[in-house]
Simulated scan of single mutants.
Amino acid sequence: METATTVLEQELLKKANEVTALLAEGKFIEAMEEYLDDNVQLFEGNNPAKIGKDFCLAEEKKLLDTVVAFHGYKVISGPAVKNDVTFYEAVMEFRTNDGTEHKFEQVVRTKWENGKIINERYYHA
């Protein structure tokens, strides 16, 4: 039996789609500036959290400074929503200035509060 989505869930799906649209264009900084809460916690797999919007932005800029070719960010499935959490599966590919080609297949779990991302974890393969 399917359950109807709530107004909150519909709004979060809209926001998740807005985020992934920016990421697909390579606009990672813009997405973070717009959607991260000031006290966000971001997790890469089982690594310790990166805490705070400013810190997360600084870390992302360091990574992006090494990227010489962006091949894409494609959502494979989702986003899906339950209560205040969204999920989606994506593939991101890029080359860094050391010549390494990177391909991240990931599931992204995002917890939202007041329209902002407060906690996000990236599960990589």
Rank of each mutant, 00 (worst) to 15 (best):
T20S: 12
L64P: 15
V67E: 08
S77E: 09
N39R: 09
A80L: 14
E60C: 13
N83A: 12
Y88W: 15
T96N: 13
K27W: 06
E33F: 09
F43Q: 08
N39E: 12
L36I: 01
D65V: 00
D37T: 02
K61V: 09
V85A: 00
Y73E: 03
N46Q: 10
G45V: 02
A90I: 00
G52T: 05
V81E: 01
Y88N: 11
S77K: 06
N47P: 01
K74G: 00
A49P: 14
E101H: 13
L57S: 05
G52P: 13
L22T: 04
E101I: 00
T86W: 13
L22G: 08
T66M: 06
L23W: 13
L63Q: 04
I29Y: 09
L63R: 09
A24I: 00
L64S: 02
V19N: 07
H102W: 14
M32A: 11
D98Q: 06
E30M: 11
H102P: 04
D65E: 15
D84Y: 09
T20R: 03
F55Y: 09
F87R: 03
K103H: 03
K27D: 01
G78M: 02
N83Y: 10
Y88D: 08
N97K: 14
D54H: 10
A31N: 09
T66A: 01
K82W: 12
F28M: 07
I76Y: 08
F94A: 06
D54I: 08
A58Q: 14
K82N: 11
T20F: 07
D54E: 15
N17G: 09
R95G: 00
P48N: 02
A80M: 13
